[in-house]
Simulated assay, not measured.
Amino acid sequence: MATAEHRRPPNGFNLVPPPGWDVIPLRTGTKEAMDRIVRKAVAQLPAGFPKDDIPKARLKLTQEMKKVVRRAGTKGGMTLYLPTERLHGVALPVSIVASEPIEIPRVRPDSGPEAVLAALASVTPGAETRELDTVAALRSERDVPADVAKGVDVAHRRVEYFVPVPDSTPDQYLTFSFSALIAPGSDPAFYDILVELFDAVMGTFRWSYA
């Protein structure tokens, strides 16, 4: 039965974000999730925070959240993962976006996802193969410099996993993108730690057949 079950494509996936992170669905329920996160953030303001400034803080949080959600949506995002609690007093400038499945034609009629991954790896600097829940995926990592002309306001470290959906017809792929904003003069080792965190999160990836 198990073999027959896994001959059909999964209908989703499970990913376990770190403690202190929240999930924002980008298909439906986006506003409700954003409102919940803003309410939680306002509730966590320091005890001495001026009450008169709370509406302003709520508005700023909402505007920032909308900006991040809009950016994720324009990139075909399906689910957004954000840290909403500070780590040792530090707000982590990171996000994870799971994108909608995309279809990619086979390199040859008799080839499979392996050939597509190999073709992408040949043109993607720093690409390497990782296994996610028994499926070979392509991982890449790079620093993206700020370029306002290209819509990149702040330099960031980007890590992407490109994952074939098993037994999908036609062949479908998911993309998981991690982004960490790079502050000028910051220690590169800090971003290496954040990348390790993302890799650990991707290690929790499992297909869902329910």
Rank of each mutant, 00 (worst) to 15 (best):
S186C: 07
S140H: 14
A98M: 00
T129C: 03
E100S: 15
P184G: 14
R106C: 09
D53P: 00
V38K: 03
E32P: 06
K56H: 03
D153F: 12
K60I: 04
M34I: 11
P101T: 02
A200C: 02
Q44S: 15
A41G: 10
A119G: 10
T62M: 02
V97A: 01
P188R: 03
M202F: 02
S111F: 04
T62H: 01
S122F: 07
V23M: 01
P46R: 00
E141S: 15
T124S: 08
K40A: 12
A210R: 15
S168F: 07
V159G: 14
E141Q: 14
F176S: 07
P105T: 10
A119L: 10
I193V: 15
G112P: 08
Y81C: 02
T134D: 12
G203D: 12
L59N: 11
S122T: 05
V116C: 05
V144A: 02
K40I: 06
R7T: 14
D110Y: 05
P188D: 09
G126V: 04
V195S: 04
V148Y: 10
D199G: 07
P184E: 07
P9F: 10
S168H: 05
E128S: 09
L82R: 12
S186D: 13
K51E: 13
F205M: 01
F176W: 01
S179M: 09
I104N: 04
E131L: 15
F176H: 04
A47W: 12
P109L: 04
V42C: 11
T3F: 15
I37H: 01
R206I: 08
K56F: 04
P55L: 03
A189C: 06
E196K: 15
T124I: 05
H88G: 13
P18Q: 14
P18S: 13
L87F: 12
S95H: 04
I37M: 06
E5H: 03
R8E: 15
A136E: 14
A91Q: 10
I96Q: 05
V42N: 03
R8K: 11
G77C: 03
K31T: 08
R157N: 07
A119P: 09
M202P: 07
V97K: 06
E114Y: 05
K66L: 12
R39D: 14
L174F: 07
L61H: 11
L15T: 00
S95M: 08
D199Y: 03
L181Q: 11
E64Y: 13
A2Q: 13
K67H: 12
L181P: 06
A189M: 01
P83K: 08
Q44F: 10
D167L: 03
A136L: 09
E5Y: 09
A189G: 09
G203H: 12
D147E: 04
P109N: 10
L194T: 11
A119V: 11
S140F: 13
L120T: 05
G203T: 11
I96D: 02
T30V: 09
I54G: 00
T129G: 01
A4W: 13
Y161S: 08
K67Q: 13
F198G: 08
V165R: 02
A146S: 08
V107R: 04
F162D: 01
H156W: 10
E141K: 11
V107W: 02
P55K: 01
I104D: 03
Y209Q: 08
R36D: 15
L197R: 14
P19R: 05
R8S: 14
M202A: 08
Q63L: 08
K75T: 00
E114L: 07
I37F: 04
A149G: 12
A146M: 04
R39P: 07
E32H: 05
